[in-house]
């Protein structure tokens, strides 16, 4: 289908880019991204991907907006406190771009439902705040061969990597096993500067746009770290894909999803970070 005049104008800054152009914009409009977590990372990613015209965006979050979220979860406003996060997020996304389809999932993803949710999307963005979810997303995406962006933030630091399952190293290739409960400081305990979520969530959105359009090189095989205190980006090369990895090696020992104990960033699912 040809673009309407409104679409040509709305997406003109994309269309003018030689790496995107009309073809790339069409790919975005025919593409789909699942954002898991409508929080710090998910908020900027959802706003930018909606604005970019990604045809179908799924957003998953079981929680309601809390006053303590507003310091960084810029998709929600003060008036949204107490509303389901997915509802609040979908409303803003549709307001930015009525052309897109937004699908909401007000639920926790677990071993029994994640495969069914991710299967309908081209790319998955991990914007969760706890290790059980991050390992579950990694393992599910590897098993479903679903490309995804992993990220984490804490204090003034953030990091991310993109995984093309069975081609590039997965999260578990680097971080083999889930750390024990309370071993690693959480955002609630240690804090996080709000704009850090904006930087890293936006980088995840960029990876989704690049994946859908084929522009440039993806952040695969390496971990990008960002330290706001020194204002430095740094890239670390990751071990080769599957080298002894429990889930993505050619002889995996994890072949079934398991639910790790659901300890959120703040260890209290009633009061999300």
């Amino acid at each position: 289908m040809p673009f309407t005049n409104d679409q040509l104008e709305r997406y003109s800054r994309h269309i003018i880019l030689k790496e995107i152009g009309v073809k790339g914009q069409k790919k975005l409009m025919n593409g789909s991204v699942l954002i898991i977590g409508a929080g710090g990372l998910g908020a900027p990613a959802a706003l930018y991907l909606a604005a970019a015209g990604v045809g179908k965006i799924g957003i998953v979050d079981a929680d309601v907006v809390d006053l303590s979220n507003l310091q960084r979860q810029v998709i929600h406003t003060t008036a949204d406190v107490g509303r389901p996060k997915v509802e609040s997020a979908a409303e803003k996304m549709k307001a930015i771009n009525p052309d897109i389809e937004v699908k909401t999932y007000q639920e926790f993803l677990a071993s029994d439902n994640i495969m069914d949710v991710i299967k309908d999307y081209d790319f998955v963005l991990d914007g969760t705040d706890n290790f059980p979810a991050k390992f579950l997303i990694n393992d599910a995406c590897v098993m479903a061969d679903k490309p995804f962006s992993h990220a984490g933030i804490l204090r003034f630091k953030g990091q991310l990597m993109t995984v093309i399952p069975h081609e590039s190293p997965c999260y578990r290739c680097v971080f083999k096993e889930m750390p024990p409960k309370n071993a690693i400081p959480s955002c609630k305990e240690a804090g996080v500067v709000g704009a850090m979520a904006g930087v890293i969530g936006s980088l995840q959105a960029l990876e989704a746009v690049k994946f859908l359009t084929g522009a440039g090189e993806l952040l695969t095989g390496k971990l990008l770290t960002f330290d706001a205190l020194t204002m430095s980006f740094h890239t670390v090369k990751l071990p080769p894909r599957g080298d002894g990895c429990a889930v993505c090696s050619d002889h995996p020992t994890i072949t079934k999803l398991v639910d790790y104990e659901q300890v959120a960033c703040d260890f209290d699912p009633k009061h999300p970070v």
């Binding site: 977590g37 929080g39 710090g40 990372l41 998910g42 979220n69 979860q73 991990d126 914007g127 969760t128 705040d129 706890n130 290790f131 991050k134 990220a151 984490g152 933030i153 804490l154 630091k157 953030g158 990091q159 680097v174 971080f175 750390p179 690693i184 959480s186 955002c187 996080v192 979520a197 971990l223 670390v236 090369k237 071990p239 959120a264 960033c265 999300p272 970070v273």
Partner: peptide
């Protein structure tokens, strides 16, 4: 990547490039 059990024995040499990778769980 060096195995954890070798951390105590593995000596570094002049010019080595070392990276530390940390678990980072935040996101919401």
């Amino acid at each position: 990547f060096e195995k954890k059990e070798n951390f105590a024995a593995r000596q570094l040499k002049d010019g080595d490039v070392v990276e530390f990778l940390y678990f980072m769980g935040g996101g919401q």
